[in-house]
């Protein structure tokens, strides 16, 4: 197992979607390769940071326009003739 193969398998490794023998080979390589350990760890952090990130509050004008548009249509649907 070389560094290039590790990079190709990073996603599968982080998602725990590898068969046990491949996982063992990767972990053996990681024990001895600090660069790959850093790449695996910072890739994991990348996913976690995005996944954990909270969306910013809606700008107030955007929020008002959403409510206006949505509920104008919803009321029309509710009160309009059924098709």
């Amino acid at each position: 197992m070389n560094c290039k193969s590790i990079v190709k398998e990073i996603s599968n490794y982080l998602e725990e979607a590898l068969d046990p023998s491949l996982k063992t080979s990767i972990e053996k390589h990681l024990e001895n390769c600090e660069d790959c350990r850093v790449v695996v760890d910072t890739t994991r952090q990348t996913i976690q940071i995005f996944c954990n990130s909270e969306p910013a509050p809606l700008p107030e004008d955007t929020r008002v326009r959403l409510r206006d548009a949505l509920f104008k249509h919803l009321n029309k649907l509710r009160t309009g003739p059924r098709v």
Partner: peptide
């Protein structure tokens, strides 16, 4: 290799889930 503070081999915290 000396112990590194990076340790991807530790049982990892599952990726966060909403």
């Amino acid at each position: 290799m000396s112990a590194s503070k990076l340790n991807p081999l530790q049982p990892r915290t599952p990726l966060p889930s909403q």
